[in-house]
Design a protein around this nucleic acid. Structure first.
Lengths: 164, 164
DNA sequence: TATTGTTATACTCTATAACTATA
DNA sequence: TATAGTTATAGAGTATAACAATA
């Protein structure tokens, strides 16, 4: 769709939008497309591992933090706790992670990667690194530095709390 | 969420992600956040006009093209035709556009802006231009040129048909 | 037969509120 | 009373297939 779309973005007829060099909405769409495409490319390549993009961050966080409560995990990743329930259901069903009861607090879980989860995460991380190189590897260091700098400035200026 | 999120992005704990200058997933999240924030800022400012972002593109296209079939409109904006039905229902309900039957083809509509729609679109476009300046106006021409160039290259390289 | 538009359905992603069991 | 987790529900998005009326 026009300007800042959340779904698939094929090139619409040019008459609807201008050049992103002059047209702010066209620049917004360009951002949306860059985001959408890169996410899609990652998703396609993780899927053969039985891992969706939404799982990948959770698995990585588990790998870094070790046994963690579901609550802490959702805070780490800034995910809603009900979304976390669904994701953990999926991870448990596919045998990547397990919900064990925490010893010190019987309300909480101690969520852990399974052995299989650890192994599949390792493969998925290698694949993600490859995708990362394919998607961003062409950026020369100076270009990447500039891109990151501009995007960070943009994000800072569009933060909800930010001054218009 | 981690890497390429489709929803709200607050800064997660830093331990989950690295620096977008080195970490591809962090750069993906930065893209997602830039997109999400700028879309949110536009949405907030259009809402007082009773216009959602998804309506804005349709109204603009109607303004440019004059009476148009629903089918053509969905092609123009690369929207699914069933999504188009819902959006048109909303636009009709809020009195911004009307579905008249096409004279030459009684299956099709000749969709038009109402007088009220034309007027509210004009105000909304002025507001959108203001938001555009707030969001992107700080970019010096050379910066914007670079940003657009890099994003276009990124999009070209991540197009579904594109070579890895 | 093909096309315009509608409906029904389904899936992803988010967010809220109400609930349970513990603390 | 507060917290950990679950459930139900809602909403914004998308996509598909089946269908009516018309061409």
């Amino acid at each position: 769709m026009l300007c800042h779309y959340h779904g698939a973005v094929d090139t619409p007829e040019t008459s609807v939008l201008g050049d992103p060099r002059d047209d702010d909405l066209a620049l917004g769409l360009l951002l949306a497309t860059a985001h959408f495409n890169s996410r899609e490319r990652l998703g396609e390549r993780l899927r053969p591992f039985g891992i969706e993009v939404r799982h990948f961050g959770v698995l990585s966080a588990l790998h870094r933090h070790g046994p963690t409560s579901q609550r802490h995990l959702s805070e780490l990743l800034d995910l809603d706790k009900s979304a976390m329930v669904r994701i953990m259901d999926e991870l448990e069903r596919s045998g990547l992670a397990a919900r064990n009861r925490a010893a010190h607090d019987r309300r909480a879980y101690a969520i852990e990667l399974t052995a299989d989860g650890r192994e599949r995460l390792r493969s998925a991380q290698a694949e993600a690194a490859t995708v990362g190189r394919e998607v961003f590897g062409w950026l020369r260091p100076a270009d990447r530095e500039r891109l990151v700098g501009l995007l960070e400035e943009l994000v800072a200026r569009t933060e909800p709390s930010s001054p218009g």
